[in-house]
């Protein structure tokens, strides 16, 4: 009897790898799966608690969707990742649903004495940005260029994989400054101070939503409607995002 049980156990184990690949198909009745930009971490769950969320850099999420990840809805912090997926016919037409602005964060003690955006170009300052292709990083470089602060790029000590990495290094007081979205600050409000970036160099930070073709369209569209509706826009507004 024990021998037979063992065989059954091993046979079940052997089946596991084969079964793993099968659940990528559409039509499963599990909760709605939302792939959302890291900066929406505190916002998106308020809209629908039942949904399952995956938070990461928008470009990383797009790469996962391209590789067949089980997403129903994609909330991107910039247009490019959704546009790329649209071009590959992996998502439906995208819609802008909110906009954000960038701020400079410095450690509470502000060891480098950063008081203005222009201070980021001061020599010897330790600046942390998002990497190439990470929207928060690309927008930050755009803003620095618009303000004529290209010299600040020489101060970069680390290119983080997502905007929370930037915030973390500043909150730990290891970097002198970082550039993040206004909506990220709340997560580290006790450890960082905010220095504003002038409106005339603010990049056009718009969030785009797209329903993933292979996912549960109906539930995704319903979520999207709520996001664009009154309740959704109020939650976005409370979090520091402006309605599109």
């Amino acid at each position: 009897m024990t021998g037979a049980a063992l065989v059954a156990g091993v046979a079940a184990l052997a089946l596991v790898p084969a079964g793993c690949g099968d659940d990528a198909g559409a039509g499963d009745s599990g909760p709605l799966v939302v792939f959302a930009a890291s900066s929406l971490r505190d916002v998106a769950p308020q809209l629908e608690r039942e949904a399952e969320y995956v938070f990461a850099g928008s470009d990383e999420l797009a790469a996962q969707i391209r590789d067949g990840a089980d997403a129903d809805l994609f909330l991107s912090a910039s247009e490019q990742p959704v546009a790329d997926l649209r071009a590959a016919e992996l998502v439906d037409e995208s819609v802008p649903f909110a906009s954000n602005r960038l701020v400079v964060v410095v450690p509470k003690a502000n060891p480098a004495g950063v008081e203005s955006f222009a201070d980021l170009a001061r020599r010897g300052l330790k600046l942390v940005l998002g990497g190439e292709g990470v929207p928060a990083g690309d927008y930050a470089r755009e803003a620095l260029a618009a303000a004529g602060l290209e010299a600040a790029l020489a101060n970069v000590v680390s290119l983080e994989e997502d905007v929370r990495g930037v915030l973390g290094k500043v909150a730990l007081d290891e970097a002198d400054a970082g550039i993040v979205y206004a909506t990220d600050v709340a997560a580290a409000a006790d450890d960082v101070r905010v220095v504003d970036i002038p409106a005339d160099v603010q990049p056009n930070v718009r969030y785009f939503a797209a329903v993933v073709g292979a996912g549960d369209r109906e539930a995704a569209e319903e979520y999207l409607e709520r996001l664009q509706g009154e309740a959704g826009q109020r939650i976005l507004g409370d979090a520091g995002l402006t309605a599109r």
């Binding site: 000590v157 680390s158 290119l159």
Partner: peptide
């Protein structure tokens, strides 16, 4: 990536 960060050519 935590302690040294991520900067091409340096870390």
């Amino acid at each position: 990536i935590m302690f040294a960060g991520n900067l091409p050519g340096r870390t």
